[in-house]
């Protein structure tokens, strides 16, 4: 009998990771994702109600805790992750973080947290201790509401500010932000663009930046200089779908994906050595309605697109050779507007 019990004990262990979706006032939904098949199982006790109006969320590289922005109360909650059950347990107290914290990003080491405050129009930087407690290190002002944060491997932080038609670039040194000025002069100005989407994509090498242009249905490319300066790629404004909203480069740096909020479709491109884009031909994978953000899992195997209109998250696989995305059947049904997605490793 003991042998039988041992046999039972050893079977059935397969790799999974967790996906957390913030939904504003209805809490954080949790799903367990199979590493190979992508099959998603709802964590039965979610949504987890944390703070109020949860927005940006990140999972620490240790997988031990997550941090989530409570937009209405101007705080950040730290949540212990139970990898066995998928449960989130908040550890109080919450950390004050401006007046309207939104999108967040962690650096690759997990030592610094960057928060876009859409009320103060600032970027707040916190140091992150091993247990997830935060202490503010610095802040930097941007002209209007920052809509996303993208951190390049070269140490630059890119912040699109669509209502100001600008991309702010900062160097990061031990959590201290220093703005990169677009031109010499008495006033340090950001890089202005004609038509800025809510997010930008940077390749893993930190050489190119891509910006969706929602008004002109195009995507612009820029080379990133050694000082963080942005120079348009010649022949800029590659055609995209209707109202491109967000962009992401895959882990290989060979492919760019742009979600089109107006056409429920994804534009797919290969990136050449000069940063030029070539459309990947074939059937365009469809999303839910009004896709608003795109992200990849830490292994680069699956992509996820948050659909604002259909209140779901669409899962994709990536063909590592052609770059083409394929929709899986594992759509995550959220039941309210998904605002951000965070994944464990």
């Amino acid at each position: 009998m003991l042998l039988a019990l041992a046999g039972l004990n050893s079977c059935g262990s397969q790799g999974t990771h967790l996906a957390y979706v913030t939904t504003g006032t209805t809490g954080i939904l949790a799903f367990r994702i199979h590493n190979t098949s992508g099959t998603a199982t709802n964590v039965v006790t979610s949504p987890f109600l944390v703070g109020d109006a949860t927005f940006g969320m990140v999972v620490h590289p240790s997988n031990k805790f997550a941090l989530v922005a409570n937009q209405h109360s101007g705080t950040i909650s730290r949540l212990d992750i139970d990898l066995t059950t998928g449960a989130l347990t908040e550890k109080l107290p919450r950390t004050p973080a401006g007046i309207s914290p939104g999108p967040m990003i962690l650096d690759s080491s997990g030592n610094f947290l960057f928060v876009a405050d859409q009320g103060l129009n600032q970027i707040l930087v916190f140091s992150v201790s091993a247990d997830g407690s935060l202490s503010q290190v610095s802040s930097a002002a941007v002209g209007s509401a920052p809509t996303s944060l993208t951190l390049a491997s070269t140490g630059f932080l890119f912040v699109p500010v669509p209502s100001f038609s600008a991309i702010y670039v900062f160097t990061v040194n031990s959590g201290v932000l220093t703005q990169v000025c677009s031109s010499p002069g008495p006033v340090c100005l950001p890089s202005t663009v004609n038509d800025a989407g809510s997010s930008v994509a940077v390749d893993p090498a930190g050489k190119f930046l891509y910006l969706p242009n929602p008004s002109t249905n195009t995507v612009s490319g820029f080379t990133i200089g050694s000082g963080g300066d942005l120079t348009p790629v010649p022949g800029v404004a590659f055609a995209a779908g209707k109202s491109p909203a967000a962009a992401a480069v895959d882990q290989s740096g060979k492919f760019l994906y742009v979600v089109n909020s107006g056409s429920a479709a994804i534009s797919q491109y290969t990136i050449d050595s000069a940063g030029n884009l070539t459309v990947i031909t074939g059937t365009l994978p469809s999303t839910g309605t009004n896709p608003g953000f795109i992200t990849f899992d830490p292994d680069g195997k699956f992509g996820y697109i948050g659909n604002i209109g259909s209140q779901s998250v669409t899962q994709f696989t990536i063909n590592s050779t052609s770059g083409a995305l394929s929709t899986t059947t594992n759509t995550l049904q959220i039941g309210s507007v998904p605002r951000a997605l965070a994944l464990t490793k």
Binding site: G12, S13, R32, T41, V43, T84, T85
Partner: peptide, 17 residues
Amino acid sequence: SYLRFDSKPLGFADQLN
């Protein structure tokens, strides 16, 4: 009594003993 509980449908990482 021992129960090998099929907890994966509840979102657990693995079965429970």
